[in-house]
Nucleic acid binder design. Sequence first.
DNA 1: GCCGTTTTCGGCCCGACTGTTTTCAGTCG
Length: 573
Amino acid sequence: MTKNIELAEVFTNIAKILKIQNENIFKIRAYEKIAETLENMPMEIETIYKTGKLDEIPGVGPAIAQKIGELLETGKLEYYEKLKEAIPTGVLELLNVPDVGPRKAKLFYEELGIDTVEKLEAAALQHQLQSLPGMGKKAEENILRGLELYKKREQRRPLGIALLAAEGIVAELKPLAEVAQISIAGSLRRRKDTIGDIDILITSLKPENIMEKFVNLPQAKEVLAEGMTKSTILTYQDIQVDLRVVPPDSFGAALLYFTGSQAHNIHLREMAVKQRLKINEYGVFQSKDDKKIAGENEQKIYEILGLRYIEPELREDRGEIEAALNNRLPVLVEVDDIKGDFHIHTNYSDGFNTIEEIVVAASKRGYQYIAITDHSQSLHIAGGLDEERLLEQIKRIEQINQSLEGITILKGIEVDIKSDGTLDIPDAILKRLDIVIAAIHSGFKQERKQLTERLRKAMENPYVDIIAHPTGRIIGYREAYDIDVQEIIQIAAQTNTALEINASPERMDLSDIYVKSAREHGVLLAIGSDAHQISALDHMAYGLAIARRGWLEKEHLLNTLSFDKLQARLKKK
DNA sequence: GCCGTTTTCGGCCCGACTGTTTTCAGTCG
């Protein structure tokens, strides 16, 4: 795990403990902010520390700079150790139970010695909570329900899963006569790679029927809350869905607010305050007389603040507001810009479809080219191709290509990078391909240095065009392997190797912050669907989401090149 | 604890809902 994430966790926990201790909320926010900054930073904090530039990071002052230094130098933090003596880490876990916040956690710990979720449940079942000050029967019941939700609550879902679920619900609600406008909001609208819950926004003057329909949806397993403006259900997939209804003239303000991110919203509201304005989910208001001056559309709200419209994918407070202010927002790549797919498997290895079936499907999607990239021999389990079968496939593709019009199949391979960094198909064969993508599929547990060197060696190979799924993470199943992504980006720039945005919903690799960093280092990105069947060609949309979240314009993406220009950009074979 | 196109001290985003309350605290997004 990278140091950034480790440090972020320490600062998050400090914030939680301080909350329980009822410290100054702004001090707490300072710790929360640095934790978030660390999580969102593509650079290693250690690198910045070594160059003595910690204080250039927004939100880092003398106190936090000292703490980062101490953590990096000693691996420990005296201040944090002291705090943990007062509030054990187990108590912090209580905060993850819905309806338990810092005040109740403190109450339960101090009055009943509750320092684990298990103890909390036992106490609730024995009705020990309802007699505590400020508690009551209802409150205790709510905690029990919170515990059920806590146990059910899955990890964050891949974007692909959540998006399908949300689109299903929108399709049910949209036809209702009372619905004026409907939109997906929240992190789903921002197309974040993983989704906690689904937010849907509707405008209407008559919400009753809409709410009625919503809580009785076939997808709804359980109703968690039901009100006039806000209801929450749990689906059979255990995904929480929030529906909010506002009047039509607040659509823009509500959409802005419910889309977030929270950091983006706070930044906008701070700007508004300086202009003697107030923004809430109903509109933009003048401070002097509370007069509403905007609300019906998002664009107008940005305009009033002196900003260009900011696409949802950019709203993470990662510099997009400053860019909008200076008219320097990227012109994000769009779906129509995509001319082809660089990562597709067939039934030559572990895919389901034939080359012919895939090319027909790709053609329907308007692609100019696709790369057939089956696994190579080391991946026995996936029926990887040895030299002989690869040569056979090359021949086959050349045959098929002769009969095609408007689309070309690129002869390719997803070649395995062996543990010593060599490839398991010799250069003499790679040379005969149009495109080579290389990937690590084994030896994930190697040391950081060794893994990074492995990738370096692969990128230095004169025939390797793209590194597939560069960090190897699988969402909810496997952590990224321990590579120095920043160094990989630099090597990619030096060797003119593209990095893949693997669009498979459980991979989504590279992730947005590294994509943005790659862009800044002049590295080209290449989206690959990693499709193993025709329907998965549509995963391209998820790859595009990452590209847009990584600030990519058309020119940063290999997939936007016409077939002719693409050939000129690939390494010479 | 951080920060500065009114400030190096005094600010720091905004509101809904719920439950236990006689006016508000806690939680959530």
